[in-house]
Design a protein around this nucleic acid. Structure first.
Lengths: 200, 200
DNA sequence: AAATGGTTTAACCAAATGGTTAAAGCGAAC
DNA sequence: GTTCGCTTTAACCATTTGGTTAAACCATTT
């Protein structure tokens, strides 16, 4: 175990606690304990809970949303792009399964957090819109609003992960192995589903 | 304004506050204020925050999940069933847009809540599985695991609502009217998307 | 009209919580 | 080795929070 510096330890501990418990449910004492430091030291580095939370939220958001845009460019065939995007994104979520719901939930409780983030990250999805519209013009895919296609792909990727407890319990009688098996299969089947839906 | 009895007022106030703020973010004092009563009276009716929360959570869950199953039986054609299901479900969500994320979030923080609920509600999705498998045998739709089809339909319905702030901000430059327009359109387009994807 | 019993309230309590203070540690510069 | 300045800690503080208590209220019964 390498000794990390205090600031690093704090951010990592804060990520763990905030993502697990949310802003309202997290406790500064728990973050301090998790980081192996004094609560006063925590406040020495980050003046308030809100400030520390903003750092964690920004990191979580950055790790998910901009990658989403990048995963969609590249030189390949449009359908291959969709396949690659789904696989890349599902792998990303698999590694951090609690981040999507963390972002969604905190944003639903305070949508204002977005305004400062978007201007700072300046996300440009126009290129993705262009690619989709091009395919529609080429008649390789059916007429669909670019936004709607993106929403559909994201829905299919993200929802089954954030709703895992319900899906696993109700649809798989509680068996995690069966849930996991389907999730593995979906790395390819989501793209096939989408392609079947839009192919001309 | 009709005078409701105290218990009713409490549950309604608790629903509002818990669904808006979550278990950790809600305050018993706020619920009492919202109900127009004393905090001691709140504890007179519901011994603890957790007990009151369980009542609210059960109500929210009941209003969503069992209706989901019911919305899928009926005598019509399978594709019509999908169309009707999506429209029914989207209308339900439209009326209570914060409930899905409330359920998803509280369940992700404490999946244990489900075990007591499922035995009490005894939800049986087998009929839906049967209908889907029948269609596959009749070759009206492509081979797909029933669970996966259900997940796909639910994903397309629920995700855009729970992720509204992100979708609206990133995909629609913040314009709620454009977001709303797409959501309205989706009451029919989701079903078309799904049908195109599975039709043989 | 007095007793009864469920309902409602003001006042209170202990624990938890975010945050502060003042002093102690401690490595680098002189 | 003493000073300087950043880092770390123990002790502390004010407020918030879930929950309790004892008394007041009030409609019904007798």
């Amino acid at each position: 175990m390498i000794e990390k510096n205090t600031e690093e330890k704090i951010v990592q501990a804060a990520e763990k606690v905030f993502i697990e418990k949310g802003l309202a449910g997290a406790r500064m004492q728990e973050i301090a304990d998790e980081a192996g430091i004094n609560k006063a030291l925590l406040h020495y580095y980050y003046r308030s809970k809100e400030k520390l939370f903003e750092v964690v939220f920004k990191l979580a958001f950055k790790s998910f949303v901009p990658n989403l845009v990048k995963a969609f460019d590249g030189p390949e065939d449009f359908f291959t792009k969709i396949e690659r995007f789904v696989e890349t994104y599902l792998n990303l979520i698999e590694k951090n399964p609690h981040i999507p719901i963390f972002i969604i939930n905190e944003l639903s409780k305070n949508p204002n957090r977005l305004v400062s983030l978007i201007s700072y990250l300046n996300i440009d999805i126009q290129p993705i819109f262009d690619v989709i519209e091009e395919e529609i013009e080429k008649k390789t895919i059916k007429q669909i609003e670019p936004q709607e296609l993106i929403i559909n792909i994201l829905s299919l990727c993200v929802f089954p992960i954030v709703a895992k407890p319900m899906v696993q319990t109700i649809l798989f009688k509680g068996y995690e192995s069966e849930y996991n098996a389907l999730m593995k299969k979906r790395k390819s089947s989501i793209a096939q589903f989408v392609i079947s839906a839009i192919k001309n």
